[in-house]
Design a protein around this nucleic acid. Structure first.
Lengths: 216, 216, 216, 216
DNA sequence: AATGAATGAGAATTCATTCAT
DNA sequence: CATGAATGAATTCTCATTCAT
């Protein structure tokens, strides 16, 4: 006893998952170029060699991280059961979820930025992500249709554009919280500031979709 | 005699400007960590030593680039003379300008992202940028006030939040054009797609500010 | 039950032989430093651990391969029954055999080169190989003696030098077929080129040993 | 004074040459895979970074070394002025030169082996080497022609094959001196052994080319 | 002021070998 | 006997920065 734990458990899946989690954190913090393989290895509890064994290099590991990040958020969205809610409630729930998810998984935002810096080359042609995305947009389209048929939503709203806007108004605020904080001169991350922004965003989206926003 | 022309006798200001321009391109393309001092030097027409002479290293050069990028957009906004336009026209003009600027100077978006990845440490405490930003928000606040007093805008709209949203809906679309293109399955950058998005954004902002959007 | 078939229950000798064969190929292709233990394991059908079990590491495995390679060619030479042939026929047969063996077992040449790069440290002091070599040279010496006594060979030919020359004129041509091909500008390995070289070599050796070559 | 010399002289050509010389030694000693960039750098007096600056990596450095090695021997051969000698003298001189060169520049042999291990991929298509080689073979062909016309050489000797054989009988002996030493049981590198081999080789070539060897 | 050769620290990647099952 | 996950020590390569001219 007291002997140092020389090898980690021979559990490949756990090792892979640990590396992936550690990589997500590091890539989110530093970007693809700034991330250090050494750090990822160290913080994963595994060692550098395992990264090459399981992921075959930094670049591929980044691909796995980005893929995983997108799959995760799309998976969570599917669990919202938006189709069981009234149209307006469904849209509001989506706005709240999106906002909460960005707050809960802040890595997502910087990973998306990194991938865009690299012109999405790590996910271009990814069939799974394409499919998940389609399911998501179709969900929103269905809500819009229900709302329109119920006479509460404006007709002809483009589901894709709405999805983008819902993401945009949360994403931008949180992504740019550091520079905006410095420029605007107030903290973007206090409880009050966050609550104010969420309300503003809900309002923005309500006015965008409702036929008669003032009645709301 | 017969000696090769070793120096370029251009004026210091031009050399500095060339380096800055080259650095903007490179930092925008690759981020702070991914950018290469060698490349910046090469493409600036100057040489590496000059970067150290004028900017004292990569990190400081990045600071100069980011500072310059923010000053530039704020400067351009000031030239819009929004105070001379009707409130709704002024807001629409701002939405269009913001969109056009992102398209015209695409480096701006990735530079902002990079600076946020680094938690704005290069511009924190920058008085000039703070001042320029304040002038900008004050401008928008003045428009809102005029609109409210004219009975066309809703009362109580938060100018800062509006500024953020105007930026957000353009910024997000263009920033994420690569990943979104891959996920949604259509090109975000065709003339038509860009026009559609701008219209959607104008609509979003109009509905957000107008007291009676349906009348518009 | 339902347990996956994990082991291969083959006999130890077969496993050893498989590893040795795989190692011969890999060492011949890449040299000692360039060879990869992983590749040897993979292509042997066994696994890396077995290499350490049976051969105790890469270096020792190389030793086994080289030893085996020399033993193999010397063994084949013994089967030629040169003593049953007329002197000139015997020598010609040896020239042909040497040439054919290099063609049939091309690994032999690069293994010999590798071992020489390492200054023969894997076979220095090897009694078996020394003994086999002696038997070989003695065979040639006996042929020379018979030829001399029969009045067809020149007297005083050094058997060791002759052995070396017989090997040299085939070995060099085949060993350097790539560089020579590039430099001379013709392919060394076409059927015609090979036949031409063999004839030239036979001629060379005949002229070297015969008392009256022009009579041949 | 007494200050340590921090930087080497700013003489690019000297630096390049030093690296090349150091690389030649290391590649000759260990092959491409076994050679260590660190060692090359250290022994060159330059540093690792310079290798990448001037040669752009290990593989390219190897290419430069091999190219240089071939160019050097062909260059030396041109200086023999074989056309000014009697045919037999010319051929003998070439045999001696080849032998002496292998002894004087032992790196040549192992470099050639290494390049052949890699299937000549570093020199394939090299026009300069092809040209130098052609000049060399043409020289030998001219000697053969002169000898034939003078009635001292056999007619119809293939110049390329002769070149190969002249190289082979020296190359093989010296290349395999370690393994052959171990197998034959005598040292290949004593003064006497070397002299004996050279005589044997001269004899071999004389008998190969002369119309009436016994008269010689 | 301008140049570009030179450098050391560090980063990604590879590899033979050992350990737990 | 057999397996393949795990490891640490090298090894190749990169990069911002400094120095001599």
């Amino acid at each position: 006893m007291g002997q140092k734990m020389a090898f980690r458990p021979r559990d490949p899946e756990a090792t892979k998952a640990d590396i992936l989690a550690s990589a997500r954190t590091e890539f989110a913090k530093a970007g693809l170029a700034g991330a250090r393989v050494d750090k990822i290895a160290e913080q994963s509890g595994a060692n550098k060699r395992m990264i090459y064994h399981y992921f075959d290099g930094k670049e591929n590991l980044f691909t796995a991280v980005v893929e995983d990040a997108y799959a995760a958020i799309r998976g969570r969205e599917q669990q919202l059961h938006l189709d069981e809610l009234e149209p307006l409630e469904a849209i509001e729930r989506l706005v709240r979820f999106t906002w909460d998810y960005y707050l809960e998984v802040p890595e997502f935002i910087t990973l998306v930025n990194s991938e865009n810096l690299h012109q999405a080359r790590h996910i271009v042609g990814n069939k799974l992500l394409r499919k998940l995305q389609k399911a998501y947009v179709d969900n929103v389209a269905a809500i819009l249709k229900r709302g329109e048929e119920a006479g509460v939503f404006r007709p002809g709203i483009d589901a894709a554009q709405l999805c983008i806007t819902i993401a945009a108004i949360g994403f931008y605020y949180l992504n740019n919280r550091y520079t905006s904080g410095a420029l605007f001169g107030f903290s973007f991350m206090t409880k009050e500031a966050l609550a104010r922004r969420l309300e503003f965003n809900l309002d923005t989206i309500r006015r965008l979709v409702l036929l008669r926003p003032e009645a709301a």
